[in-house]
């Protein structure tokens, strides 16, 4: 890391330049409270996420959940939810699909991401791989449907949902790997090569540990995007029902589903909160 050009550039920041900046800027830039400001901005945004979620959890134990008034309290919605059971299979499918998409994303994003960073002109490949991001979800779904079903005449089902989810999630996964890979110094591999490491050793012992945050991020995003995906799935579902499709369909049932959905959301919240906390804690501890 010695002799980094950025540090050399930094050394060129001379006092003359600083004087031109004016006093106000100097005082502002020297102020050490920026960390706290950053923290506060983030906590504000997190509050914006959790105010409705907290209220939702509260409403899930109240008589009329849409009113905004929690009393009288009741657990009956949880009873209804547990005796219903129709949502179990969709939930199961969504979880499995999410896991499969996550692992495929990790694998493909790592392979392709590494390859892209070693290209001379990666611009073209990059743009092609990011195209699905810029097409409205329903249109992408319609495109896949017309192509797979109308033109190729395939029977749609879980496999086509998987394809649609990959089209949606892979660009995100790829970007995450690229962000990390772009900070990777190829000379490390050169050094390893000089020390007699073979291809696999170079990847597994040097490259992978550095890329790991990106690869993990790719997996997490892959799972989350798949778990939530609705717009494309509607088109290519065949006769499968995932969790988002289930919620979407139930919206037309002309019976209030909110009590049940709120209860389900609260259960998911209570399960994922500790599980994900431990997962990230282990991840960071290992990395740190």
């Amino acid at each position: 890391m010695i002799g980094n050009p950025r540090l050399q550039r930094l050394a060129r920041v001379d006092t003359h330049q600083l004087d031109q900046r004016g006093r106000y800027w100097r005082r502002l830039s020297g102020w050490s409270g920026w960390g706290r400001v950053g923290m506060c901005l983030g906590f504000f945004a997190i509050a914006m996420i959790y105010v409705p979620i907290a209220l939702l959890a509260l409403m899930s134990i109240s008589q009329s959940p849409l009113s905004g008034i929690p009393y009288p309290l009741t657990l009956q919605h949880y009873g209804t939810l547990l005796s219903d059971g129709r949502w179990l299979l969709p939930l199961q499918k969504s979880v499995i699909m999410g896991v499969v998409v996550a692992f495929t994303c990790m694998l493909v994003a790592t392979l392709v991401g590494r390859a892209i960073t070693r290209m001379k002109r990666p611009g073209g490949v990059l743009i092609v791989s990011l195209i699905p991001l810029f097409v409205p979800g329903l249109t992408m779904g319609a495109a896949l449907f017309i192509f797979l079903r109308t033109m190729l005449d395939l029977k749609l089902g879980l496999w086509s949902i998987f394809v649609a989810h990959m089209v949606w999630a892979l660009p995100f996964a790829l970007l995450l790997v690229l962000v990390v890979a772009s900070r990777f110094d190829l000379r490390l591999l050169e050094a390893a090569s000089d020390l007699g490491a073979n291809n696999w050793q170079r990847f597994w012992q040097i490259e992978f540990p550095i890329l790991r945050p990106g690869i993990m991020g790719a997996g997490i995003f892959g799972f989350l995007l798949s778990f939530n995906e609705l717009l494309r799935s509607i088109f290519v579902r065949g006769q499968e029902t995932t969790m988002p499709i289930y919620n979407w369909a139930m919206a037309a049932s002309q019976q209030s589903q909110v009590p049940i959905i709120f209860a389900l959301a609260t259960i998911i919240l209570l399960v994922t909160l500790p599980v994900m906390s431990i997962f990230f804690w282990l991840l960071f501890r290992k990395a740190g």
Partner: peptide, 19 residues
């Protein structure tokens, strides 16, 4: 840190309409 990242992840699991 892990807890904050978790907090940022959880919303993805919850139905956006109900939120």
């Amino acid at each position: 840190k892990a807890f904050i990242i978790t907090l940022l992840t959880i919303p993805f699991f919850l139905d956006p309409s109900s939120r």
